[in-house]
Computed example of a mutant assay.
Amino acid sequence: MAFMTSRVRVMGTDQERLDRFFDLALNAKRADDELRTEFSDAEYEQVLDYVAEHPGDRPQLAEAFVAIAYDPSLGPIDLVEYCMYALQWPEVRGRFIDRLEGEPSERARSALRRLLKAFEPDWPHAEIYRRFSKCKQ
């Protein structure tokens, strides 16, 4: 994977589709920044829908989620948690575990542990999103 200034290039996928993914992620970040005290998962749903519409891009989209997790300027960390709770992609979980094992910074390890919680069935943040709170009723 080669990094550009504000975008991530992932080989093997149509760059326009990947750019669209990152545009949606940035829309979610803007919505998060505007709301600050209230969660609206509409923008997160758009990302999840986009991912579902492009199953053939899964390896590249997995890399894109990892890129967002490591560089929040690409999109919100909460988006990664939300999508991974829904998608349960083991390849993304594995990347976080690998990074956690070699990470010297306690702050970064704490962030990685938070990301990994999204793969658990009882993810504590699930209830703040309409999509997941309905599932538990």
Rank of each mutant, 00 (worst) to 15 (best):
E120D: 15
E34Y: 05
H54R: 11
L35W: 06
A69F: 12
D78H: 08
A111K: 13
Y70C: 07
A126P: 02
I128W: 07
I68V: 15
A67F: 04
F21K: 03
I68R: 02
R109L: 03
L79H: 00
E38S: 10
R17N: 12
Q15M: 10
E106Q: 12
R93P: 01
E38F: 12
T37V: 09
Y129K: 03
A67P: 04
K136M: 09
A64Y: 01
E106T: 08
I68A: 02
D71H: 11
T13N: 03
I97E: 14
P72D: 13
V66Y: 15
G12N: 08
I77V: 13
M4G: 11
G102H: 10
F119Y: 15
P59A: 08
R109D: 01
E34L: 15
A69C: 04
C83M: 05
C83P: 03
L100I: 01
G56H: 06
E91W: 04
P104W: 04
V80E: 01
Q46A: 15
D71G: 02
E81N: 07
V66Q: 05
M11K: 10
S6N: 12
S105H: 05
V51C: 04
A2F: 11
E81G: 07
F39E: 06
P55G: 05
V51R: 02
E127T: 11
V80H: 01
L87V: 07
A118W: 03
R30H: 09
Y44R: 07
V47G: 02
R30F: 04
A62N: 13
S133F: 04
S40T: 02
G102M: 03
L112T: 05
L74P: 02
R30Y: 04
A2Q: 14
